[in-house]
């Protein structure tokens, strides 16, 4: 950028964009720093909070690897959803806390993304009661799913299984990632001897430990309102 740059300055500034450096970083530097400064994967799901607004429009982001990693396996997953359309709507209308739920196939994974109101365990528990059959149809196609199906007979294990697959929600503000890591390590101090310039490394190492994450807590057009409030305000009842 400035005119007093030497050729060496320009070369070094451009290094991070070169393929050589990127390979060096991914093959050597990242594993080295992961070994030298290990990080624990941050837990998934919404941050616990007692504030009402934080318990409305919560996100669940599940990425579940399919057992059958072929077009046939993906088709089976698609069919499991299509065959249970009525059951899914009946569950949504009866539970009454879901803004939306989406099933998406990405690669050899079936993903379930939903936005719901209230407590996570109650959300899953309600759905086991109302559409447990849909969960069973999907989860039996997923790696590790056999251990928790039928979900009606394995309620607590099933809730834990889902929670473990719910993605870590990277905070909206970059430095809150540091606070999450400190909290996980039992460090609640207001003061420290930190090095803010190490934030990139901490992000990289967390994404190494947690390959799939949700970016931010979600961007909402009408934050602070439950599905029931929206439906009530629109006069469409529940």
């Amino acid at each position: 950028m400035p005119s007093d740059e030497s050729w060496l300055d320009r070369f070094v500034s451009g290094l991070p964009e070169t393929r050589v450096f990127q390979r060096l970083a991914s093959w050597l530097l990242v594993p080295y720093w992961a070994w030298r400064t290990p990080v624990k994967p941050l837990p998934g799901g919404p941050h616990p909070s007692i504030q009402p607004g934080d318990n409305i429009q919560c996100m669940m982001n599940l990425i579940m690897p399919l057992k059958d990693k072929s077009p046939i396996g993906r088709a089976k997953a698609a069919l499991a959803i299509a065959q249970n359309k009525d059951a899914i709507y009946a569950g949504l209308d009866n539970v009454g806390t879901v803004h939306f739920a989406r099933f998406v196939i990405v690669g050899d994974n079936i993903c379930m993304f939903s936005v719901y109101d209230g407590d996570f365990t109650n959300y899953i528990r309600d759905f086991i009661a109302t559409i447990g059959g849909v969960f069973n149809a999907v989860v039996k196609l997923v790696e590790g799913g056999d251990a928790v199906t039928p979900c009606e007979h394995n309620v607590e294990a099933f809730i834990q299984w889902v929670h473990e697959r719910d993605l870590y929600q990277v905070p909206d503000t970059a430095t809150d990632l540091l606070r999450d890591q400190e909290a996980l390590n039992g460090d609640k101090a207001s003061f420290g001897h930190d090095d803010l310039r190490l934030l990139p490394r901490k992000v990289v190492l967390q994404l190494r430990a947690n390959a799939n994450v949700s970016l931010g807590s979600g961007y909402r057009a009408y934050p602070g309102f439950s599905a029931a409030q929206v439906r009530n305000q629109l006069g469409i009842g529940w």
């Binding site: 950028m1 400035p2 005119s3 007093d4 740059e5 030497s6 060496l8 300055d9 070369f11 070094v12 500034s13 290094l15 991070p16 450096f21 970083a25 530097l29 990242v30 720093w33 090095d195 803010l196 310039r197 190490l198 934030l199 990139p200 490394r201 990289v204």
Partner: peptide, 23 residues
């Protein structure tokens, strides 16, 4: 301006580089 060698050291530590001063 941070020396090129210092910058390389920062990169090896996966550290945010120090911003170059403006003209």
């Amino acid at each position: 301006r941070e020396s090129p060698w210092r910058k390389i050291l920062d990169m090896l530590q996966l550290k945010e580089p120090v911003r170059d001063p403006y003209p």
